[in-house]
């Protein structure tokens, strides 16, 4: 009798859990299809004619080697090739913000809802 009850409880718990998850998976998919419009943007293949050109690959590295790797990438690849991340000093000044542009002398019209 005890074995029967334990078997039943285990079956009900697992069955209910799995049933709820499957149900949520089904209806959340329907929900996304029904209520989300145009949830896609141009990706890699839309903007690049060729796949990524891999210039360095290493497998099985230490989990904490990320920062060393990024530092090496910057110092041993980017900088020797004339690329300086975060350096914008080469940009020219001929790119004014619109706030810097001169205002027009005479407004083209007087808006009706001008509260100012």
């Amino acid at each position: 009798m005890v074995a029967f009850i334990i078997k039943l409880i285990v079956a009900i718990l697992l069955g209910t859990g799995a049933g709820t998850i499957i149900s949520l998976a089904i209806w959340s998919k329907f929900l996304a299809k029904s209520n989300v419009l145009g949830d896609s943007a141009g990706g890699f293949n839309e903007y690049s004619d060729s796949p990524i050109d891999i210039i360095w690959r290493r497998n099985g590295v230490d989990s904490d080697s990320k920062n060393t790797y990024f530092k090496r990438f910057k110092e041993e690849y980017l900088i020797p090739n004339g690329m300086k991340p975060g350096d914008y000093s080469y940009l020219d000044d001929e790119f004014p913000d619109y706030e810097d542009l001169p205002e027009v002398d005479i407004p083209l019209f007087k808006p009706k809802n001008d509260a100012t």
Partner: peptide, 26 residues
């Protein structure tokens, strides 16, 4: 609508899966 459909489907699936699992465990 979302909750009622989810609960209804979950109930039907739970009964069927519980029944199947009971026999699988057996």
């Amino acid at each position: 609508r979302f909750l009622s459909l989810t609960i209804l489907t979950a109930a039907v699936l739970s009964v069927a899966l519980s029944y199947a699992l009971y026999h699988v465990i057996g």
